[in-house]
Design a protein around this nucleic acid. Structure first.
Length: 368
RNA sequence: GGAGAGGUAGCGAAGUGGUUAAACGCGGCAGACUGUAAAUCUGUUACCAACGGUUUCGGUGGUUCGAAUCCACCCCUCUCCA
């Protein structure tokens, strides 16, 4: 591990939970943090002004999607994604390792990388660690992710072991690649639900010059309890001086449990996707399907305690009407609400960590 | 008044003797969604004390072992001609 363009300051520990700051050239990130997902270089349904109003310190973009649609050459010509998308805060780019997993019907591993077919036009591509790092250099993200092999769970020990071995080799190659001066790289720990595999993977990664580490290969088929348990047993063993990122997670409950285990960073499509599918988050880890007939004449806001644009001005009845009528405005309002809900939750978590009230907050999220 | 077409579940629309409680679409009701192939997908939608039963395809009567489907009469709708 190596201090670099991305650094971490620990402010306070509370049990395994950590309150800290990740420093980037596009601003500081107060942690624990939730990072909204903007796969194609935009948070789905929102304009950049609307995203800025939500005030996230960092958002995601996806190397795989930008590679297929724009390519490294154009992104370099355009001056990087910050400029192209007019976003002046931090970006984290996922490497596309997860797409190799989620598009698994079209993939084939090779000692050197992975072959797969584009989900857009079926064209064939060969992903190598070097190509992925070059793409992320062209994007100019603040945090780049290594290429990893993410198996779906449940998986056999052999599959998990293969993924760990392959991911170690690929991580080494990613670490050797040149990258922009402002960019840091995070390694990714695989190992499924096998603690010894995770520790073995971690042992290899801490020898490499990364600025942070992430837990990959979770929320891919196991139960939430299994995931929380893995985090409890594993995360505290990660280096203290670097940010810890739990990839692709999760529900509000998952976030609280992740923080309790010592996670600093999260990302998930859940608030944005669920908004588009008609589900909003309310209260402590509850969901509300706006389509339900019960909302037909409900003049209350989505969440009485929320101060987002949707909750300040509109009723469930109105938003339900817009959603059922397939008005894009409903999706916009619900996306704003859900992201506000997630960002507020993280703010509450950070405050609770500062005030030593985190366990009380956490208790509200235990499943009934 | 004459000629033609048609009346099928909330709506639209298949089906022209048995495997049809009735395709399909919409609408309705509910569910799923975790490093975004997703403003998507799944289930359900006659009635009931419901793994069984009861009544359905404009109405009434008939043919048949058996009808939404064939026959007769009646009611209603639409188009064209007077």
């Amino acid at each position: 591990m190596l201090k670099g363009p991305i650094s971490y300051s620990l402010i306070k520990k509370s049990g395994k939970a950590r309150r800290g700051v990740v420093h980037t050239q596009h601003g500081d990130i107060q942690t624990p943090v939730f990072m909204p997902v903007g796969t194609n270089g935009a948070i789905k349904a929102l304009s950049v002004e609307q995203v800025e109003a939500l005030d996230p310190s960092i958002i995601l973009a996806n190397t795989y999607h930008l590679y297929l649609r724009l390519g490294a050459d154009f992104l370099r010509e355009a001056g990087g994604l910050h400029k192209l998308a007019s976003w002046d805060r931090a970006y984290l780019t996922d490497s596309g390792g997860f797409q190799v997993f989620s598009l698994s019907k079209m993939r084939k591993f090779d000692p050197d990388g992975v072959h797969f077919q584009s989900h857009i036009d079926g064209s064939r591509h060969f992903y190598t660690p070097e190509l992925v790092m070059d793409m992320q250099a062209a994007i100019g993200s603040d945090i780049a992710m290594v290429l990893d092999d993410c198996p779906a769970l449940p998986a056999t020990h052999e599959r998990i072991e293969a993924s760990v071995k392959r991911s170690i080799v690929w991580a080494e190659r990613c670490a050797r690649c040149e990258r922009p001066a402002h960019q840091g790289v995070f390694g990714i720990v695989q190992g499924g639900l096998e603690l010894d595999m995770r520790l073995r993977h971690l042992e290899a990664l801490v020898e490499m010059p990364f600025q942070g580490l992430s837990i990959g290969g979770l929320s891919v088929g196991e139960t939430p309890e299994e995931m929380h348990d893995m985090c409890q047993k594993f995360v505290y063993q990660m280096p203290e001086d670097f940010p810890r990122y739990l990839m692709g997670v999760g529900t509000p409950w998952d976030l609280v449990e992740g923080v309790a285990a010592g996670i600093d960073m999260f990302d998930c499509v859940m608030p944005t996707r669920n908004a588009r599918m008609g589900t909003v988050f309310v209260g402590e880890g509850k969901r509300l399907n706006i389509r339900n007939a019960a909302n037909r004449k409900d003049m209350r806001p989505l969440d009485e305690n929320c101060q987002c644009l949707a909750c300040r001005r509109f009723s469930r009845a109105y938003i339900r009407h817009l959603y059922v009528a397939k008005e894009i405005t409903a999706v916009i309002l619900m996306t704003i609400h859900n992201l506000t809900h997630y960002l507020d939750l993280m703010r509450k978590i950070r405050t609770a960590l500062e005030n030593d009230t985190f366990e009380e907050l956490r208790a509200k999220f235990q499943p009934a």
